[in-house]
């Protein structure tokens, strides 16, 4: 009970930043940086410093992307990869959440599970991809398993850290008002751990995408990883780049979904 309450003035309800401020401080700097790189890149292509067969010009990539977006095979591949990513994430995050909770609530299960989990994390799991191919086949299943395996650990950690970071004063308070263990878990521990959990989930969803692509590289018949390999073999480098840009955009969308949920659900974050 050493925390002091610093300010005595009421704070405004929501620190609304004006649109203009947001534009200048948040959107403008990265946009300028990226635009600068693209211009230099394009100049490099025009002047012939960069060989277009090895490094396509940004304009060529954009044209390839525009072309791809009208092709059914591209959207089929995108749909496969997205499904692998999302299923893998859901399975990996669910198992991680259960394990993390078990570890957080009981010292004994933690003593048993934690070293094993860390060992699993340290193992280069990408190396398991050929094995998964043998076990789960050429189809979507081996990719889902790979995505789940890769995105699993940050969620375990975030659940564990979240459960541990519950303020001791709050636990004492809950004890003093006669809270049951279940009520304490439901009404104090879970909400307290949400901010950390979400940072783990945001990390995990991007890792799941990496897992899916790696597994596709190792062996698949469809998906965006397959497309990238195919374009590279055909020396359609602009299309290969375009697929990578599309992957980045899909990854960003997935990330934003969680960012949005985070801001919605953990509305009190950084307002304490």
């Amino acid at each position: 009970m050493s925390d002091t309450i610093k300010d005595t003035k009421p704070r405004p309800a929501f620190g609304k930043i004006s649109f203009r401020n947001r534009f200048v401080n948040v959107f403008l700097p990265p946009t300028v940086l990226v635009a600068l790189i693209l211009v230099l890149w394009e100049l490099g292509s025009i002047t012939g410093i960069l060989n277009p067969i090895i490094v396509p010009s940004p304009i060529a990539v954009v044209q390839a992307l525009a072309d791809l977006s009208t092709q059914a095979f591209f959207w089929d591949a995108a749909s496969v990869t997205m499904r692998e990513t999302i299923y893998g994430f859901l399975i990996g995050a669910s198992i991680a959440w259960i394990l993390g909770t078990l570890m957080g609530l009981s010292d004994r299960t933690r003593a048993a599970l934690y070293p094993v989990t860390v060992g699993f994390q340290i193992m280069p799991r990408v190396a398991l991809a050929p094995l998964f191919l043998v076990w789960f086949g050429f189809g979507i299943e081996s990719k889902v398993v790979m995505a789940a395996t890769i995105c699993f650990f940050p969620v375990v950690l975030s659940v564990l850290v979240g459960l541990e970071t519950v303020d001791q004063d709050y636990k004492t308070f809950f004890r003093s008002i006669g809270s049951s263990r279940w009520d304490e878990y439901r009404k104090l521990v879970v909400p307290s751990s949400l901010p950390v959990l979400f940072s783990g989930l945001k990390n995990a969803i991007t890792l799941a995408l990496i897992g899916a692509i790696v597994a596709e590289f190792v062996g698949a018949s469809e998906g965006m990883g397959v497309l990238i390999k195919k374009f590279n073999f055909q020396l359609e480098v602009a299309y290969g780049f375009a697929t990578i840009v599309a992957l980045m955009l899909f990854g960003l969308i997935l990330y934003w979904i969680f960012e949005f949920l985070d801001n919605r659900i953990v509305f009190w974050r950084s307002r304490k």
Binding site: M1, D3, I5, D169, Y170, T172, F173, F174, R175, S176, I177, G178, S179, S180, D183, K187, L188, P191, F267, W268, R271, K272
Partner: peptide, 30 residues
């Protein structure tokens, strides 16, 4: 947890995801 004893701490133990009213009612809710 006895209902006939209530304790107030040095630091206001209020949950940020609850409103003032929801915080106030918490001991009764438990």
């Amino acid at each position: 947890g006895r209902t006939d004893i209530s304790i107030m701490f040095q630091r206001a133990v209020l949950l940020p995801w609850r409103t003032v009213l929801q915080n106030t009612v918490l001991p009764a809710e438990m």
